[in-house]
Amino acid sequence: MKRFFGLVLAFGFIFAGCAEKQVVKPEQPATQETTQKAAAPEAKAEPAPVAAKEEPKRVETVPVTEVVETKPGVVAIENIHFDFDKYNIRDDAKPVLRGVSDWFVKNKSAKMLLEGHCDERGTNEYNLALGERRAKSTRDYLVSSGVGKDRLEMISFGEERPLCKEQTEECWQKNRRAQFVIKNAAEGSRK
């Protein structure tokens, strides 16, 4: 008899154990999740605020681009362009690059940032690498024509900063470029 009750009790333990587990288990991750999400700083992404913000921002971007355009107006250096998926310097870029190295002769302490860009076709990471290669080809060409390496910095923006957003070959060609940004331009032009 005792043994029988032992059995019953043991069964009781097993089932009690299971039942308890089942009740507790699903709740735990639920709270974990909510605390994680609640902890996210500046968490916001409801459709309304994003849509509302887009409108005024679009108005603000216009004066920003205008400012950028007046600066290179002092020393206008046109962009050089590349073939699709390529990073070799094309013949049509060489006169521009000669102009750039002449500019460096005149502006002895000036420095330049070479930006490499791509068109929107292609995957992000590869396009960033491609953009960097375009910047590097540009730099190597300038170095071989006598510009000091330390005067040239490079950065790739991949497909992140297109000049034009249409899906046409003309537009894509505009975006596949190396862009010349004069650093401490004021200092350079004074000398």
């Binding site: 996210a40 994003v50 887009e54 921002k57 971007t61 992000n124 990471e125 923006f157």
Partner: peptide
């Protein structure tokens, strides 16, 4: 992308509960 800046976001696998993580910088990759 929000205001021409790329930021990090998180959501449920069903696309609900979208939240932006408040990190700095204009570009971020996968």
């Amino acid at each position: 992308e929000d205001e021409d800046k790329k930021g990090l976001y998180i959501m449920g696998w069903d696309g609900t509960g979208i939240k932006r993580l408040g990190i700095k910088g204009d570009f971020v990759l996968t």
